[in-house]
Amino acid sequence: MSDSEANKAIVHRYFEMFNSGDLSRLADIVSEDYGDKLEGQTSGIEVVRSYLKGLKASFPDFTWTIEQIIGEGDRVAVMNRVSGTQVNDFGDIKATGNRVDFAAFQFYRIADGKLAEHWEVADFAKFQEQLTAKPAATAFKSFQNTLKD
């Protein structure tokens, strides 16, 4: 198996672990000083563990579904779907029972057989809209509406 294939397998294991909700083997997949570049995150495996547990507490059926995965060298890029139902509070948002489904793009760096860094771009506007049932008035949507005239 090539390094790129081995790195993609690590990402697959991470997604499978999250989907199952069993984080007991997180240290086998994520480095101790894991650097999550998601907004508001700080580094470290315990931060990631807390974050993942929090997501599963709010959305017990949250799943990450890989739609495309590309690996080159020590980097792996994933286009995926995120979906689940909010049954418990999510930060300041009280439990809604709403189902969410949105796209995300993940970018990982692998070192010594573990995930070392993570960057993410996701459709958080769609997530927010589905969660709060309030249409998001984003600048891009406003721009698109001006083109329809």
Rank of each mutant, 00 (worst) to 15 (best):
P60N: 11
G71Q: 04
N145C: 08
R109T: 11
I110H: 03
M1W: 01
N7K: 00
F15C: 06
R109L: 13
E72C: 04
Q86W: 08
Q86I: 02
Q144A: 15
K94S: 08
K134H: 14
G97A: 06
E16K: 05
I93K: 09
S58L: 07
D89A: 14
D149N: 09
D33N: 15
N88S: 06
V78Y: 08
L147G: 02
F62D: 06
F105D: 01
T85S: 07
R75A: 12
E120M: 14
I70C: 09
T42D: 11
A125M: 13
G113N: 10
S24K: 08
R81Q: 11
L23I: 03
Y108S: 10
G54N: 05
D3A: 14
Q106I: 09
Y34M: 07
R13M: 00
S142V: 15
V76I: 03
I110D: 01
Q68C: 09
F59N: 09
D74A: 06
E117Y: 02
E5D: 06
P135W: 14
A116V: 03
T63N: 05
S142I: 10
Y108P: 07
S24C: 08
E72M: 06
H118F: 12
D22F: 00
G71R: 03
L52N: 05
F90L: 12
F127T: 05
E117I: 03
Y14C: 07
S50K: 14
D112R: 07
S31H: 10
V76Q: 04
D28G: 05
P135C: 02
